[in-house]
Each structure stands twice: as C-alpha cells, then as structure tokens.
Design a binder for these strands. Structure first.
Lengths: 338, 338
DNA sequence: TTGAAAGCGCTAACAT
DNA sequence: ATGTTAGCGCTTTCAA
C-alpha cells in the first residue's frame, strides 16, 4: 500500500506538501496540487486513517452500542431498523460506524468508558439499555458524547431520541373507547423500561379523559416477550372475563395475546379487540391483522445520528427529539358488542 | 486519557516495560508486572488501539460489507441474522467489527480495495453481492482476505459459505411430489443470484427423479420481491390452471404467491400447495402458515467469521462451508386433490 | 508556496 | 529483567 511518502517522493515534494495538497489547503500551488493528485491516483494512494486519527485525535467514527444484540431481535426488528437509520445517516455525514455489542457478562469486564475509549469512537448511540442498567450512570457521568434511544435523560454530553409513547398509547386506547369499550386491559412490558412507564401513562390518560376508572388489576406485565404475554393474558382474561379490549405495549406481546385469546375460545375481534404498539412487520401478516401504533424506528436511528454529530461538532442545538406516532387501524379491533 | 507513558512515569519504569508487562510477556519481573498492572488500573489506562494498530500493522478488525443494507431487509432479516452471527463470533475470537455498507452509487466512487484498505480491516465478509456485480472480480483478484456469503467462489484469499440450496430445493419439491403433485410451478428469484441457479437445479433434480418432465414455462422469476412474485404468480396460474403446487425460492415470494392465489379465488392449500425457502419469521405467522426450507442465517454468519479468521491467522483449513437445510412442514401444503 | 522537524501512542529490535 | 532507540503514517507548527 502506497503511503504519503511514496507520493511525495515520486512528486519530488515533501510529505507536508502532499498532505496539504490532498487535504485541500489553499496555500499550495494549483499546478503542484494537480500533479500530486495525479500521482496519488496512479499509486492508488489512500490515506491511512489510523495514522491520521492518531495525530488528529479525531476518528470520525461513531459507535452503535447495543445492549443485547440477539437473534431474537429479528422478531421486532427494532435494532436492525435503528441500525439502518444510523448507518445511512452516518455515511451521509462522513462518519464511520462501528458496532459495539455488550451483554451483562461483558459489562462485568469492561466499563462503558473503556469500551468507547478503546475503540476510539468520538461518540456513541446507545440502544437497548434498561433504566436499571449500571451503564446508565456511567453514561450520564461521563464526558463521552452519547445519544440514548428510548431513555429520556440528558446531561452536558448526553441527549436522547424517543417516540411520543404517551400520545401513542393514548391514541390507541382512545381508539378503543371510541369503539365503546370500557373494560380495557393492558399488557405492559416491564417496569424497568421507560417506554413501559410512558405507555402506561398514556393508557391512564385515555381512561381518565373518558371517565373510566383506572383498575390496576387490569394491567399485567408481559416482559416484552410473546410467550410471557400469552401466559399473563390468559390469566388476565380468565380472572376478568368482563374485559372486551386489550392494549398491548408491543406488537410482539399482542401476538401472544392473540394466541391466548384464541386458546380461550374467543372470537377475534368480536369477543376481544386488541391494539398493539410498534407496527412490526408481523402485525400486518397475522390473523387478524393488528391495529397498532406505528413508530418509525429507522427515523429514530437517523435522528440519533444527527443529534450526536451535532454534539460532536459543537453545534448548539437541541439534544433531544421526540418522534410522533401514527395509529394504524387493521382488523383486530371492532365495536364493543358487549 | 492516560497513556502508556503516564503509567511508565508513575511506575518509575520505561514504557517498554509497561508494554511488555501489560501484554503478558514473560521477560518481566512478576513483581514489577503486578505493580504496573495496579497502576494501570488506578489510572484507568487502556491502550490506544489506533497507535497499536499503526505500529503492528494489525487491527484485529473485520468488516461486514453489505451491498444494499436497506430497511426492506427487515422482511426477511437475512442481513440482521447474519450480522448477529458475525458479531457474536467475532467478539468471541477477539475481533472488532465494522459495518461497511455500499450501494451502486457508492461503488462508483470507491473501489472495493479502497473501501477495505481505508478502514484498515484485515478481512471482510461480503453479503448481498450479485454474480454480475463488478466488485466480484475485484474481490477475486485482490489479496484481501474475504468470505463471500452465498457466492461459491474461491481464490487464494477468498472463500465462501452458503447453504445447500440444491438439496434444500430438492427436498421441498419432493415433498410436493410425495403429496401427489405433478404439475409443480416454480417462482424463482433472478438469474444473477447463485442461490436461484441452485434452487432451480434442485427443482429440476426432484422432478427428474420422479419422472416429471421439466417445463420451462412453469418457471417464473419474482426478483425475490413479494409484489413482483404476486404478479408473476398471477400470470403463471392464469396461463397454467393445471398447476397444483408451487415451489418459491424465498418465503417472501411465497407470501406474494399466497396473495396471488387467494386473489384468484383459490382455496389454500386445497387448490394449491405452496412451499417457500428460508423459514423467515413471517412464514409461521401468515395464513396458511408456510411449509418451507429452513436455512440457518445466524450460523452462516458464524461460519463466515470462523473461515475468515482462519485465513487471517494463516491456518490451513477449508476455505468454504456449505450448511445443511431443514424442511419444515406447515399448513400450506397438502395432498393433490387434482 | 514549500520544507524540516516534531510528535501522536504504541511495539520491537537491539543493547545492557 | 529492563532501557534505549527507532519508527509505524500522518498532520502541524515554525522557518525559510
């Protein structure tokens, strides 16, 4: 591989001049620049980014730190779609992307700082972290630029992007109240997830606004897992046969709820209306297809990248962004037939 | 950030000694080593991998080069699951992973070599490349270590992993013949894809083995797209109403085929049996659920990483691997009721 | 407009 | 067992 010295030698100039010529500095003769460019091309020279980064102390690299990158993520594609957004946007803004994945095991060995410093990322986008994760404190107390996905916390160097979960949940539940449902259960994720807290709040708000008393027995946690959701839904529906509609905090859990309801001999949607959250691909293919609250995961990745690079480049801009949701009506909801 | 010099100074030794101590060389006093380790910890020193790589000319980094990383990939999750496999395996083997994505636009600007050299990856796993992609020649003629996914080509520095598409397709079609089907159509991908060529071969073999003449009019290309598959399937079934079963080269296309058949008023699976390929998540959720040939995409990523690191570490091992498939019977296939 | 020299943080001969 | 020195490929003062 040709180095800057090879180019310099062949061009009969110093490496300094080559560096300046190739990096577009103005204080270099245009003729020299052209000659150098020509020669660089001939030698198919491309700069060693390692060396450059070492001296400039800039890597133009951001990390996508995923806590729990697992194949199970295929089902909702959250990580993948965020990744696509980050990747596209980073590429456009001239940043490299490195993927850093951790799990609780790895976290024992390496601190958040180490993970980031070692790989020389200038900033990091953090996905999949829970509110009780020890990393979270580290993140907030570190000077490393970071954008959190779905964890609304800020500091000097930390911002976040998330979806308007409260409004989304509220819309979903109000869709059900408009259909005449009064006994509306909720299958939530888990209390360590901010999105769960927010979706619960939206649920409560919608009830309140429609004069329905909140009944804590109507809310169960499905751990964001299909199987768990199936079990807890079965229990919920058995204990409370008066429930005519269900709001699930994720589509995947809604799949579990659908199975549970079918298993109990319920006719969907006539005996039970179900609304999900996410608009994952499955939701339009399952039977009945799922009414849901769509969130734009790709855009989440894009916005995270924009916010992060803003911080990195010292732009004084908002450090957080909340994306809107869109309600999508499909077959799984219908009027309350009592 | 503390450097090796800070540690050396505080420990009252030379940087060389620190380097040796921390990298586990034997020619260093155990007491000194312990003291240095202690101090490194105190200063929360972690080595600058950039500097190390620069001098060692080793980055311990592999690239996953994805041609066409797009959100549409969510539907089959191929890329994501391969990524998970690569990521897990690379982590285990002590390699960093950088994601490199290209598209035809980008390929105009940068050659394959440039892309790899610039990012200083030691080797690369290439996913999503077509047989008519100009990169392919570059790859084969370059000295960069590379594992191709689903493109069976080898050279000194190039190997591949793929699934046994021929056997998989053969099994799928024989499943249909066993059910009494004789007029079996095929919805293939496109001729630039190796997997398509192989799945077609498997289809032909199964027919031949069962004494069924190959009819080229029974084979159409659906471009691996759901919509295209729907269109071509509609045409195929209209022109050849005698067809009682369909083998689709991907589950996604099978989804399109299912829609086409339903649209034509066919009762599934009684009027038409459909087999897919891939075992994507959707295939177990759609109606009717899809009989299909499962391929292990995660394992594809794992094996690719193993093969690549073998090459990088100079191990003399096989440079290719073909993974088996598994046939999965679901609701979309049944006996030929003629 | 150009070049010489220093140095980014690290490893690796080659001493000692 | 430890230190000295050189150098990886690049950018950036400072001088000319």
């Amino acid at each position: 591989m040709a180095t800057i010295r090879d180019v310099a030698k062949k061009a009969g100039v110093s490496v300094t001049t080559v560096s300046r010529a190739l990096n577009g500095y103005s204080d270099v003769n245009e003729k020299t620049r052209e000659r150098i460019k020509q020669i660089a091309q001939e030698l198919s020279y491309s700069p060693n980014l390692l060396a450059r980064s070492l001296v400039m102390k800039k890597t133009k690299t951001i990390g996508l730190l995923v806590s729990g990158l697992r194949i199970e993520g295929s089902k909702d594609n959250f990580t993948f779609e965020v990744l696509c957004g980050v990747n596209d946007c980073a590429g456009e803004l001239g940043y490299e992307l490195v993927l850093i994945s951790t799990d609780s095991k790895k976290q024992q060995e390496k601190t958040y700082k180490q993970l980031c410093k070692e790989r020389k990322v200038e900033g990091v986008i953090l996905q999949g972290i829970k509110t009780d994760d020890p990393y979270l404190d580290e993140v907030l107390n570190s000077e490393i630029a970071c954008i959190l996905i779905d964890v609304p916390m800020e500091s000097d160097s930390v911002g976040y992007v998330t979806t308007d979960n409260i409004a989304g949940a509220k819309t979903a539940v109000e869709h059900l109240t408009k259909l005449g449902h009064r006994n509306i259960g909720m299958v939530n994720g888990h209390s360590q997830a901010f999105v769960s807290q927010e979706r619960l709040e939206g649920y409560k708000k919608a009830l309140g606004k429609n004069g329905i008393r909140f009944n804590e027995n109507y809310v169960v946690d499905g751990a964001f897992l299909e199987e768990t959701a199936e079990q807890v839904t079965t229990n919920l529906l058995q204990k409370h046969p008066e429930i005519t509609a269900l709001f699930c905090a994720s589509d995947l859990m809604a799949m579990g709820a659908i199975r549970a309801a079918k298993q109990l001999g319920k006719n969907l949607p006539d005996n039970l209306s179900i609304v999900g959250f996410d608009n994952i691909i499955l939701s339009s293919y399952c039977t009945p297809s799922l009414s849901t609250v769509a969130q734009n995961r790709y855009q989440l990745g894009v916005e995270a990248t924009v916010l992060l690079t803003n911080i990195l480049e010292g732009k004084t801009a908002e450090k957080s962004k909340v994306l809107p949701t869109e309600f999508i009506k499909r077959e799984s909801t219908t009027e309350n037939h009592g």
